[in-house]
Design a binder for these strands. Structure first.
Lengths: 332, 332
DNA sequence: TCAATAAACTAAACCGGTATAGTTAAACTA
DNA sequence: TAGTTTAACTATACCGGTTTAGTTTATTGA
């Protein structure tokens, strides 16, 4: 291993001067800089980030902690989009992304703490999940840096990037109503799943109905857990309880796939007999089912902004007001 | 920050003794250990992995480098499965996983080098891609640890976990032949895509034909780039050139989705008019198209074994013979 | 009983950078 | 010209662990 000292020796300067050259400090004369750069090249020197981290007390690493175990996460396209967004921003900014998916939901926050305390990550991006309140309190107390993908507790004002699904579901419902549909099902997200404390999707749905002077019928709504299987089940269930169902809005694309399968399995014609609005507008959905209207879900942007926000929080050493993104509707 | 010294002071022992307790060394008397553990608890002490890494010259971090940019990678289910396998093994073994997806293919290997030299990862898992020969040579020379997901160069004997697709495509072809199909299309993987130097999929296909006494017809074969779009295009193309095509084998599931779309778009009936064998047997495919036979692709296992192998290489400080997994066929 | 050995522990150097404080040389000011 | 300021650079402590070599205490053996 060649070290900074080897370079200093060869260039005939002090270690600090080499350090300055590496960090592009202006406090080095051009002649000296050239000499140091030459030595660096000659020795094929690469600075040791670990050593720098130790002294700087900053690792330039960000933890990305996802709950529910890897089999859920790495197969959930929305989480992958969020991860992708965070990855793209953070690597461009010189950060390394440590990804971890603890098997048990309740371990997710412990993981965030572990990464911060033991691994010295500069910050963590995490999902709302059970027991988050106390951990976030611990984070606040100890001045740990974090950004949550969604709101974790009622009074949270800072350090989150959430998606408000009201506009998308409002527009979707309105669109379906305008097409003449009167019995519109909704496969909502489960309230308990991420401890979401807002019921945006349902609110958008209800207010569109209200606007049209229609009554809200709870038997047209189901809560789903974001999986294919649950989309399938809940769709079957909805159709059985509401034989005159003619349209269906889904909270997520994996559930949409389940819904499509259920509709086909019942021998019904997708969109002709039951019109479906997809939940995320993922690329695969667009390609496989190009004539499905879809609520958009800005997962990639959410992840990107979470990356941006954590960097800001780190650099400015203070909390940042949360961001709320909005869903839209793509009519096809 | 409480440090090891604070603990040592409170417990009335030397720093080294605390270090021994942390690392579960047997060279500490039980009484002393208890005293130290009490002090650790009292001070809520967490060891600093960065400091330990610096002296140990080992970071317990593994780099996972994927080429082609994040939009491909995080949306390619097979890569995610490999990542998931590696994640599960490595985190269980106490390693952190740094994931990075450089935008340009050619940067993937530079990334691997950067992670090793600058970030001090203990090893990297990487994909075969262009220019890999020289980099692997550099890795060998400098004694860097690596495992490749596939074979990178002709003479590679060590440090890889690859999948031999011969058995799956042989069995798939045989199966289709046994059902009476005589014109069986193959959407192969592109040879140049990963610099695969073996043509296993094609070989399995050809040898099954040969066994059945049939002639190999190159116009039934297309190379695909693993995307939905290319599956769609190549399927259209195959059908146009071979109107009597009655069955089709796909090298991957995303391409299978494209194929299915193309078949439906032509008004043909999937499986009744053109029988399709899927390429990966991904969970989503199983759920969406439960009566599609499929070649299996042990991506998760491949990733897991890559994780296992890199740990072995690190611990034993020597190369490990490569592993070849085999595909199978699931008939549905 | 006392030397030899093993067990338990410690002091101080070290890993490879960065930060602090201080030094030297050149440039500027009155 | 002497005094002051600025630019460029250096010596050394430091980050928080681990390692090395050595010391003290307890145990064993003849």
């Amino acid at each position: 291993m060649t070290t900074l000292y080897d370079v200093a020796k060869l260039a005939g300067v002090s270690p600090k001067t080499v350090s300055r050259v590496i960090n592009e400090s202006p406090l080095v004369a051009d002649k000296t800089r050239q000499r140091v750069l030459k030595a660096i090249k000659e020795l094929d020197y690469h600075p040791n980030a670990i050593a720098a981290s130790l002294k700087r007390n900053r690792s330039n690493m960000i933890g990305f902690v996802v709950p529910y175990g890897s089999d859920f996460v790495f197969q959930d396209p929305n989480m992958m989009e969020q991860l992708r967004g965070a990855h793209d921003y953070l690597t461009a900014e010189g950060f390394e992304l440590i990804v971890t998916a603890p098997i048990y939901k309740k371990d997710a926050l412990k993981e965030a703490v572990r990464l911060t305390k033991n691994r010295n990550v500069d910050g963590v991006i995490l999902y709302p999940s059970f027991g988050v309140d106390e951990i976030i309190n611990e984070f606040k107390e100890k001045n740990f840096r974090y950004v949550t993908l969604g709101i974790c507790f009622d009074q949270q004002k800072n350090n989150f990037v959430e998606v408000d699904q009201t506009p998308g579901s409002f527009l979707a419902t309105k669109h379906l109503l305008s097409l003449g549909h009167r019995k519109i099902g909704l496969i909502n997200k489960s309230r308990s799943f991420f401890m979401y404390n807002r019921d945006d999707l349902l609110m958008g749905y209800i207010s569109a109905l209200k606007e049209a002077g229609m009554e809200f019928n709870p038997s047209l709504v189901r809560e789903g857990d974001f999986t294919f299987e649950d989309g399938y089940r809940k769709c079957q269930n909805l159709i059985e309880e509401n034989p005159d169902l003619s349209a269906l809005i889904c909270a997520s694309d994996p559930m949409t796939y389940g819904v499509i399968k259920a509709i086909c399995d019942r021998g019904l014609n997708l969109n002709r007999e039951i019109e479906v609005v997809a939940g995320d507008n993922l690329p695969l959905t667009q390609k496989m089912f190009p004539d499905l209207s879809s609520i958009t879900n800005p997962s990639y942007e959410q992840g990107r902004l979470a990356g941006k926000m954590i960097v800001e929080i780190i650099n400015e050493s203070q909390d940042i007001p949360g961001i709320t993104l909005k869903t839209e509707l793509v009519i096809r």
